[in-house]
Simulated assay, not measured.
Amino acid sequence: MPLTLTSRPAAYLGRWGEDTETARAGRLWGGGVGHRAVSSPYAQLVQPTSDNTASLITAFPVELAGDAEAVLAIMPASRLRPAAPFSVVVQGRRVCIPGRLYNEEPQADAVATLSRRRQQLLHCLYSRHSDGWVRQRHLSEIVDSEDPWVIPFVVQLVGEYVVEILVDICEGLRDLGTQGTRAHLAYGQFLVDNPAFFARTQRRVVSYWSCYYRSAYASFSGYLGCTLLDLLRSAASDRTGRPWPSLAPAVGTRVDGHC
C-alpha cells in the first residue's frame, strides 16, 4: 500500500482531532476492529489552570527566552495546561517540551508581527498541539530546519501515530540519510546527546505500527516509520563511529503493541 496523504487506514479516520476531547473527558480510545482500547497518555495529566504559558519558555534554550516570551504574548489563553512534558538536551542545555498543547492558534495578523525566528518558535510549539491537523500544518513550516532547538520537535513527531505526518517528515528531510549534510550532522548529534529519548522514540514507532498499521503494512520494514528510524540511526551511527542499536522487531517476531 503506497504512503500518501490519503492512505490512512479506515479504522483510523477521525483520530486526529480526538486528543483534546480525550484529555478533557479522560475516556478511552483505541484502534479499529481487533485493536485493544488504550487510554490516552495525556488524559491523566491535563489540568485546568489560569496561567498555562510560563512553562513553555523552557521549551527552548535560555538564549531564546526573550523570543519565546514574545511568542507566548500573542498565543490565546487556554484553560488547560500543556500536558506530559518531556526533557531533552539541546546543545548541552536541557529543555522541557510539552507533550500536548491546548491553546487555540493565534490570528494570522498577530503572527505576521513576529520576526522569522519567533515565527519558527511558534510553529515548534504548535507542532505539539492536541489537534493532528494543527500539528501537521505547523510542522510543515519547520521540518526542513537544521536549527538545533527545532530537531526535538520533529523527532517527537516521528514517534507519534499519524502516518501522514511521517510522510511529511520524510519528504522534508531528504538530506537526512546523506553523510556530511547539515541535517545528517545535526540530527546525529541530537540523538547521540539523547539516547534514552531516541530509544523511547524507536519503541513508540514499533508500538503504533503494531497497534494501528499492521493491517496495512504487514512487515515493519515496509512501514515509513521504520524508514525514518533507519535514517536517524544512520545519522547517530556516523556521529559516534559505531552502529546504533536498533529496537525494531526481527522478522517473524510477535509484537503486541501498546500505544
Rank of each mutant, 00 (worst) to 15 (best):
R137F: 03
P48C: 11
A70N: 14
T181G: 01
Y213D: 02
F198S: 00
R182K: 08
W29Y: 11
L125H: 06
F60C: 01
G14S: 07
S145R: 08
G188L: 00
Y12T: 02
S210R: 02
E63T: 12
L5M: 13
I74G: 01
T201L: 09
P85H: 14
W244R: 01
V71H: 10
P85E: 06
G241N: 13
N52L: 03
R203K: 15
W209R: 03
W209F: 13
W149N: 03
E104R: 04
F153H: 04
P195H: 12
A84G: 07
V154D: 10
S50E: 11
I142L: 02
C226N: 10
Y42N: 05
S234Q: 13
A248L: 13
Y187A: 01
D51Q: 06
T6E: 10
E63D: 13
P41E: 08
L157K: 05
Y161Q: 13
V163G: 02
E160N: 11
G66E: 06
Q189H: 14
P2K: 08
E63H: 12
V95Y: 02
L185I: 12
V255R: 09
A23F: 07
E104I: 08
H184I: 00
C124H: 11
F197R: 00
A83P: 08
V154L: 12
P98W: 05
S39G: 04
S55D: 10
N194S: 06
R203S: 03
L125A: 04
E105Y: 10
L114A: 02
Q156T: 09
Y161S: 08
S78E: 03
T6M: 15
T113P: 01
P48Q: 05
N52T: 15
W209V: 00
A23V: 07
Y126M: 07
R242I: 14
S140Y: 05
P41I: 10
Q202W: 15
V251H: 13
V62I: 04
T227C: 07
T58K: 12
R203N: 14
F153A: 00
D19F: 03
L232Q: 02
G180N: 02
G66R: 06
D168H: 11
C259V: 12
L5D: 05
A186F: 09
R214G: 02
F153V: 01
A110E: 12
A23W: 04
L232A: 00
Q202H: 11
D147P: 01
L101H: 13
C170Q: 14
D193W: 00
A218S: 10
T201I: 03
H138L: 04
A196Y: 09
